[in-house]
């Protein structure tokens, strides 16, 4: 997993509640058997005015100038600001891969859908929950100031505005450590291989029918 420590970057606002993973990465791009290359299709249905093909070539497509990702002031953004229930719907991890591939390192929202929230950590993208009021205030600031940047500090668990206001956020200690160190989850779990085998031995006695196939 990619490690995360701090990020100081341009913020792009997606001002809509309940943004679903179909919107983040449209299904025609799920046919890829790779993990990379999804960035050019992040928010594809909103970024382009015409549908794209699965070959992934964006040349010649009509760009939607109104969509934030196409506006010059948000180019190079690494922090995404969103509304409640971000990432709802399909479990597709491709949504996180698309954000990551595009260059987004952290997503700030008042709430996230559960599966999306989990998936973020696997690619080293940090999902940050701040209160609805705070997020609303950040939206106002981002829209008001071109080149607006936030500083995300994982060790201290804070998001700091250019004006110096710092907001604390929660993150589980286990996940935090994994993210800071860039640990491989599977490697960590396999350290418990003996415990898994013990468990299996016990379960096999209690519920043998679950181990028949």
């Amino acid at each position: 997993m990619k490690a995360f420590d701090q990020e100081h970057g341009i913020v792009v606002p997606i001002d809509q509640a309940n943004v679903d993973t179909d919107a983040i990465i449209a299904k025609q791009y799920l046919k890829s058997i790779k993990r990379s290359g999804f960035g050019p299709h992040l928010f594809d249905n909103w970024r382009y005015l015409d549908p794209g093909g699965p070959d992934g070539d964006n040349a010649g497509r009509r760009i939607n100038p109104d969509f934030v990702l196409n506006q010059p002031r948000y180019q190079g953004a690494s922090i995404l600001l969103a509304r409640e229930n971000f990432g709802c719907g399909s479990s597709r991890e491709h949504a996180v891969w698309a954000l990551d591939d595009y260059g987004i390192r952290a997503v700030i929202a008042p709430s996230f859908a559960d599966i999306f929230y989990n998936n973020c950590f696997k690619s080293g993208v940090l999902p940050i929950v701040l209160s609805e009021q705070t997020v609303a205030a950040l939206f106002v600031q981002v829209l008001a100031e071109e080149g607006y940047r936030l500083r995300v500090n994982l060790p201290q668990q804070t998001v700091t505005t250019p004006g110096g206001d710092a907001f604390a956020f929660e993150v589980g200690t286990f996940r935090k450590q994994c993210l800071l160190q860039g640990f491989d989850d599977i490697g960590l779990t396999l350290q418990h291989a003996e415990a898994i085998r013990d468990y299996e031995r016990r379960r096999r006695e209690q519920v043998p029918w679950l181990f028949e196939q």
């Binding site: 479990s91 996180v96 998936n119 696997k122 599977i186 779990t189 396999l190 418990h192 299996e200």
Partner: peptide, 15 residues
């Protein structure tokens, strides 16, 4: 439901 990294995790560790 789980994500693809978790699919790999379950394949590799059953957990």
């Amino acid at each position: 439901g789980i994500g693809t990294s978790e699919v790999e995790h379950v394949l590799a560790t059953q957990c």
